[in-house]
Amino acid sequence: MIQLKKISKTFHTKTKKVHALKNVSLEVKKGEIFGVIGYSGAGKSTLIRCVNLLEKPTNGEVYVNGSKLNTMSAEQLRETRKKIGMIFQGFHLLKTATVFDNIAIPLKLTGVPKREIPNRVQKYLAVVGLEDKQDVYPDQLSGGQKQRVAIARALSHEPEVLLSDEATSALDPETTESILDLLAKINREFGITILLITHEMHVIQKICDRVAVMENGEIIEQGNVIDLYSEPKQATTKKFINSLFPSDLPDETLKELQKRGPIITLTFVGSSAGKPALSMASKKFDVHANILSGNIIQLKDKPFGRLIAHLEGEPEETNKVRQFLANEGVQVEEVSFDDN
């Protein structure tokens, strides 16, 4: 549905060139929710704005639903953009217009027949749960309600693609949850392809099918969400994932424990997350297992868990435990503190 081929974007300031994107290639499949995550300055906002050519790439090709946007005339691009909705962190609502008019005015400007506009507005306000707010003004709405109006406005053009530019960053956690649930519902019920950017791992784990990690204008890693959580390759990816599984134990304490046996990280994916594998291993072998920290989170389709545990026992027995856990579908990695 979306293809970015070797996209580069260079900005020129008075004193230097800024290479915001460097030879980025990305493909988003029809009907999926694809997330792009990165820290501030990674280039993700520039990337998403290149999809609908709000930012024109310095080099590279942009395809949406098989059509190459780079070579389109201004009129062709306007028509194509009707099928590419976009929602922003800052809502971009007209303060002096009612909720109804905030949705109706863009429809009128893009040539939707006048008689059709009220039905469209009411239909998509119902989708976002705000059918009773059409006559109020944005200042009378909460942040979450404003974002719902912005989503309804984007949906009213009946797009095939929805771009989300940090749509939940300005919202509190509870409201963020409700907006993510809404985006998942839109994807599920309307089949709209969603490309979103974020700096929050929770957004990725909650609704995304696949994810790309950006750093310094480049995609450093991408793939299915479950695969990146299970086996992250890059330091930045590991840092994002580790933020979901904090350990407050000081290294000195862990080093002392390590003298009596290995400290291991256990990663549980899918059905293995529900097994008492560590407890089973403790009973089966002559090893005392102590859980030091851990958490289980829910990805879009399956649970994912990570524990840090200390195994106290003879090396032969702790090795048997590690092999047993691996046979039970648990990923096992020993924690090393030699370099600390």
Rank of each mutant, 00 (worst) to 15 (best):
H12L: 08
K14P: 00
K17P: 07
K22N: 14
N23L: 04
I33E: 09
I37H: 05
K44M: 09
K44E: 03
C50V: 04
E55S: 09
K56N: 10
Y63K: 12
L69W: 00
N70L: 07
A74R: 14
E75C: 02
T96I: 06
T98Y: 01
D101Q: 15
I105R: 11
P106S: 06
G111A: 09
K114C: 05
N119I: 15
R120E: 07
A126E: 15
E131M: 11
V136E: 00
I151P: 03
A152I: 03
R153K: 07
P159E: 00
T168F: 08
E177D: 12
L180M: 13
D181M: 11
L182D: 06
L182S: 05
H202S: 14
V203H: 06
I204C: 01
E215G: 05
I219P: 00
G223A: 02
N224P: 12
I226D: 15
I226A: 12
A235W: 02
A235G: 01
F240T: 13
S243I: 06
S243Q: 13
L254W: 04
L257E: 00
R260L: 13
P276V: 06
A289T: 13
A289H: 03
S293Y: 03
P303W: 06
P303Q: 09
I308A: 10
A309C: 07
E314F: 06
V321R: 01
Q323H: 10
E328Q: 15
Q331C: 03
V332G: 08
S336T: 13
